[in-house]
Design a protein around this nucleic acid. Structure first.
Lengths: 223, 223
DNA sequence: CGAACCCAACTTGTCTGAGGTGTAGAGTTG
DNA sequence: CAACTCTACACCTCAGACAAGTTGGGTTCG
């Protein structure tokens, strides 16, 4: 039996139901699904809703619809979306991965930072200090500073990995800030300043340690 | 001036038009799009069609619609294919990223490894020792061992990141092996054994250092 | 008998209008 | 100034109608 849980949009539920039946092998790869009207009645939703579900799966590359012909299965398994992974896993896992990336990036940045990088980091640091009106704004300036650090490592792969995290981390951070604001704002800002200083003074070990300490601190604050 | 070419579905054209305007920065990341009726009229399609376009982009993780609130931009760019990124960047960048991921994973593995993890790692180590007939086979058993280490960290994000690297690293490794075989095979195998032993003895610092030393050694061998 | 044509049934594509449900902000009240 | 209420507005869902395209069977002609 399909899950009777009704969380959220009907179209999303329909999409999940369809994906389940596809993965179960009800319609083989390349084969045609029943007509929209038939399928809609079968699942118990309107045709428009079913069409939105089909579009959602089409966007993921699972289905393809051809006018006049039908809807066909194009791929049995969705390339596990990176975004989906980040939504599913725990915040702790994400933080550990951030430690891995940002600490190493900080160490490399201490080696390779240019004067221009340093200026950008200090500018971001100043903006972080200046603005904490809304949680959204603070999250943005904070992420901007962290990104500058990673960018200063001059490693494209690390930067790409970091950018992959940004959307998920931003959302989580805003949630956290609204639930429990930073209690010691000064210490937090000082920790970030220390990180930038370590990079400025070309001290890889200190930079990595600052980064690691900050993120494990966030981890501890959450638990 | 949107493309005047009208090939195929209107909904697909609308989706492309939207994506173009999003990438152009018309609506910043996390911001709200105009209402459906407004946007539909603006683009020149019906509401249902626009909704299907939105679903298509939502399936790709670009948009997210919240009932009662609006439609929001979640990601400026569709997950740039890792394959493409990894092909473009230098081998050195990839190795540095591997250091970040594998050293941290090794440290975590030293904390969290189970007896079952240990067995799997030792099995992989034995296979690595036994087989070096072809470059392909050796690359496979080597990557298998490294993957076991990351898996023993019990961090899904790190494992996912590592798996993203595997295809590219495998190809590069095979190329390198054919060009310049490992000169001191015994030392190489011993280094891997030392890594596994450090994890077995729950020594995070040593595990991280073994991993880091090995990968920087590979880096040096390439330059 | 075979091949080209025609057409009717069925498919997806699009539009419209109507309600339902949930959110956020303005206004009010204590 | 804080808490509450309420209204406007957003997306969500459905039903029906017509347009556009594909398919396959029946018909017609060579």
């Amino acid at each position: 039996m399909a899950s009777a849980v009704q969380h959220g949009r009907l179209a999303a539920q329909a999409a999940e139901a369809l994906l389940g039946r596809i993965r179960a092998g009800e319609w083989a790869l390349g084969h045609k699904l029943p007509g929209e009207t038939t399928l809609a009645a079968e699942i118990g939703v309107g045709r428009s809703t079913l069409r939105e579900a089909i579009r959602e799966l089409a966007g993921k590359g699972v289905l393809e619809s051809r006018q006049g012909s039908g809807v066909f299965v194009m791929s049995t398994d969705i390339a596990e979306d990176w975004d989906v992974v980040l939504r599913r896993v725990s915040v702790a896992s994400v933080l550990e991965a951030r430690v891995a990336i940002e600490a190493e990036a900080a160490a490399l940045a201490a080696h390779r930072r240019t004067p221009s990088d340093l200026r950008a980091m200090r500018r971001a640091l100043a903006r972080r200090s200046g603005s904490h009106h809304s949680a959204e704004e603070f999250a943005d300036v904070d992420m901007a500073l962290h990104r500058q650090v990673v960018a200063a490592s001059h490693n494209e792969v690390l930067l790409e990995l970091f950018d992959g995290f940004v959307p998920r981390v931003r959302v989580a951070m805003i949630e956290m800030l609204k639930l429990r604001p930073i209690h010691d704002y000064k210490a937090d800002q000082a920790a970030h300043a220390a990180l930038v200083e370590a990079i400025a003074e070309r001290d890889p070990a200190a930079a990595a340690e600052c980064s690691r300490a900050h993120l494990t601190g966030v981890h501890r604050a959450l638990s």
